[in-house]
Amino acid sequence: MFRHLSAVWTARHFLLALVKLDLRLRYKRSVLGIGWSLAHPIAMTVVFTVVFSQLFGDGDPVGYAAFALAGLAVWGFLRDAATHGSRAFLTNEGYIRQSPMPYTIYTLRTVLGQAIHACMALSVVVALLVVWKGDAGVFVGVALALPGLLLALVAAWAVATIGAFLTAFFQDVAHILEVAAQIGFFLTPIMYRRSVLDDRGLGWLVDINPASLYLSLIRDPLLLAGIPTVAQLGQLGQLYLSALAVTAVLVALAAGVVSWLNKKVIFHL
């Protein structure tokens, strides 16, 4: 596994050049260019503040907008990293057939691109919180959320890699993931608060949902008001422990899949 990672490191120039290209191509020939990555969440903020906060909010339209926007950004990252990442071997077949690079760089290409995109949306959330609340404590939240983002990135890379290997054998996997993502969107407290489910005795749905784990890991510290209390830090620490465990399991699974299918996958592309 460490040999594999060092091979990925050797390919970093190739990888980063392609990630940059993906970002550029995403908004090719549009006037705003990469600005769309910012314009989209800003437009969403307006809708959330004006409309959705009436439905789900608790009398704090801007707070709700930040909540929903952060949720959508993280969820969008997890979903797209998994579903697009699962097709990575099919879309990068040209390189795979030419060069013996480690296959995981192609899933990492997708995951990194999506992560940068999500970070731009999250930066809108941070800007919104700073401007609206005028609270420098937001930056403490950012510092607390960053390791969570990193964990989510590693986990998403692992899931995308597993998905990509399986998709090479059964294309159905990519479709299954898309359906699962659609269902997951409604079962995860993204647009509504966790308490909605807790009140109806459905809190366990959240507890067994790894996506909501990464979601709270990144969103909760961002939305903290002011300097976190000891209790809040303790809660966050618990979240981090669970996320570390889940990430470790996913990475172990991915490593297993890679060593199992690495030499077979090329014949199935």
Binding site: A17, L18, L21, Y95, R97, Q98, S99
Partner: peptide, 27 residues
């Protein structure tokens, strides 16, 4: 290696960019 040549291009990127990518691919 020079095979499947037309496969390993990023078709949306310019020639200059592709020179970069392929050179990186070759280490």
């Amino acid at each position: 290696s020079l095979f499947d040549i037309t496969l390993g291009f990023e078709h949306e990127a310019t020639g200059w960019d592709n020179i970069q990518y392929r050179a990186y691919l070759q280490g």
